[in-house]
Design a protein around this nucleic acid. Structure first.
Length: 315
DNA sequence: AAGACGAAAGTGGTTGA
DNA sequence: TCAACAACTTTCGTCTT
């Protein structure tokens, strides 16, 4: 009795039981990154939910007091990994009294050197700029925290190996994000990445190929199935239809129909077929629009799939 | 009238010499 | 660096519902 009451209260405190973007109830709390993420569409619903839990296990009250956490968790998305020290700008001591002139000039010098140490060289400045830009893009694309961390680490690697020289920071940032999305299984297309970026698709593609070669990312070609849930929710499809589309893609892959074809095209065709078969019909045009391919491509893929998989397409 | 279909020409990217 | 090539897009006319 008491248990169920406290449970409902904690749910209420979290505030979100349904994704406002796609309506899914599959909301996951990512404790490590401190955010609420919709598993269905991959959007971050609430960021920077502070982790108030203890840092370690504690077995007694005394230990609990000793071991409670202090400070924010470390992150790769800030150029000094969030491990910053700060010197107050007010010329006051700990008790709020004014400092003597001698002390004051000392503090002035300290602050100056502290600032210089923090953003010390070109690389640090580069990182600081790039990571803030990355954060902006990631928000615009609605990416969860883990993808941002992944992208940041990739970018750090690229800087360390001096791959940025002669290339635009923006391009490499976009490429790192594009790669991280694929790595985390919530791919965004090059176009989508380019929309959130200040550089064009071509540049991002070039940078991506370059860093993936130099950093040995060797990512597998995108699985069309990972687009299904996103496109599906944009089209208001039921869960059954979506999983049927994924099944279809699996079969197509076994027959080798997917290689060399654009994953978005395959996903679009599979979705179109299942909408026809399950009666939740969407037009080729609608499907093509959310997948950002043309009707013609949807048609071609759909014809291939229907032929090779011997689907009795009762239209 | 909207959607589906297909042909033909054009485009951007990859590959191999 | 260039040409060949496959995949994809654009465009447009025709057929179906």
């Amino acid at each position: 009795m008491q248990k169920s009451k406290s449970k409902s209260k904690s749910e209420k405190e979290e505030g979100l039981t349904k994704c406002p973007y796609c309506g899914s109830t599959a909301i996951v709390r990512d404790y490590q990154r401190g955010s609420l993420v919709c598993e269905n569409c991959g959007r971050v619903l609430k960021d920077d939910v502070m982790d108030r839990g203890p840092e370690w296990r504690a077995f007694s009250q005394e230990q609990r007091e000793k071991r409670s956490r202090g400070g924010a968790p470390m992150t790769y998305t800030i150029h000094d990994k969030g491990l910053t020290t700060r010197i107050d700008w007010r010329n006051r001591d700990a008790k709020g009294k004014s400092l003597s002139p001698k002390r004051r000039s000392q503090m002035y010098r300290l602050r100056k050197w502290h600032r210089r140490a923090r953003i010390s060289d070109a690389m640090e400045r580069n990182l600081a700029f790039a990571l803030s830009e990355m954060d902006r893009m990631a928000s615009q694309l609605g990416l969860p925290r883990n993808v941002r961390e992944m992208a940041s680490m990739t970018y750090r690697d690229a800087v360390q190996k001096q791959l940025i020289r002669g290339r635009s920071i923006e391009g490499v940032v976009s490429a790192a994000i594009y790669a991280a999305c694929r790595e985390c299984g919530i791919p965004r297309t090059l176009e989508e990445t380019a929309e959130a970026s200040r550089v064009d698709k071509k540049e991002i593609g070039r940078s991506y190929r370059f860093i993936s070669r130099e950093l040995d990312l060797h990512l597998l070609p995108t699985n069309p199935a990972s687009y299904v849930s996103r496109f599906g929710s944009e089209l208001d499809l039921s869960g059954e239809a979506q999983s049927e589309a994924i099944e279809l893609i699996k079969k197509a892959k076994e027959k080798g129909l997917t290689s060399g074809r654009s994953p978005t095209g395959i996903a679009a065709a599979a979705i179109y077929i299942t909408t026809v078969m399950t009666g939740e019909r969407r037009t080729q045009n609608d499907v093509a629009k959310v997948a950002k391919v043309t009707e013609v491509t949807v048609r071609n893929r759909y014809k291939e799939l229907a032929e090779e998989l011997d689907l009795e397409t009762e239209i």
